[in-house]
Simulated assay, not measured.
Amino acid sequence: MHYLIENDLLDKNDIYLLQQESYSKNIFDIQYPMLKKALPSDGNNILRYWSGPVLIKGSRYFICSEWYEQPNNNDRPFFEAWYRKKLKF
Results as ranks from 00 to 15, higher is better:
Q20N: 14
E6R: 15
I15N: 01
N26R: 09
D29K: 14
W50G: 13
G58C: 03
Y3S: 15
Y49T: 01
D29F: 12
Y68D: 04
D14Q: 11
Y23M: 04
K36H: 13
N74S: 05
P71F: 03
M1T: 13
E66Q: 07
S51A: 10
S24Q: 08
E66R: 07
L87D: 05
L87K: 08
H2G: 14
A81Q: 04
S59M: 10
F62S: 00
N7I: 07
S59F: 11
P71K: 07
L4E: 09
E21H: 10
L35C: 08
E21M: 09
G58Y: 02
S59Q: 13
S22T: 14
N74M: 03
D29T: 12
K88S: 11
I56Y: 03
L55N: 14
W50Q: 14
Y61V: 08
P77R: 01
L10I: 06
S51H: 09
S41P: 00
I27S: 05
S22D: 14
H2P: 08
Y68I: 02
P71G: 06
D42S: 13
K88Q: 11
Q19S: 06
K85V: 08
F28Q: 00
K37Q: 15
N13R: 15
M34F: 15
K88D: 10
L39M: 13
L47D: 07
I63D: 01
E80T: 10
W82L: 02
L4D: 07
K37N: 12
K86E: 04
P53Q: 00
N73H: 10
R48S: 04
N13C: 13
I56S: 04
L4A: 12
D42C: 12
R60K: 12
P40F: 11
Q20R: 14
P71E: 07
E6V: 11
W67C: 00
L87S: 05
N74G: 00
L35E: 02
Y49G: 00
F79S: 08
Q20A: 12
Y23C: 06
D75W: 09
S65Y: 04
Y16A: 15
L9I: 06
Q19D: 03
E66V: 01
D29I: 11
D29P: 02
F78V: 02
I30P: 02
Y32W: 10
K85E: 12
F62N: 03
Y68R: 00
Y61W: 08
P40S: 14
Y23W: 10
Q19L: 02
Q31P: 10
V54G: 03
K88E: 09
N26A: 13
R76M: 11
W82Y: 09
Q19Y: 01
G43T: 10
I27Q: 11
S24E: 07
N74E: 03
P40T: 11
P33S: 09
R84I: 08
G43M: 09
K25W: 12
Y3N: 15
Y68L: 06
R48D: 01
K37E: 15
N73L: 12
E69L: 03
R84C: 06
K57P: 03
S22H: 14
M1V: 13
E21F: 05
D14W: 08
G58M: 05
Q31C: 13
L47N: 10
Y16L: 15
I27A: 08
K85N: 11
I56F: 01
Y49L: 04
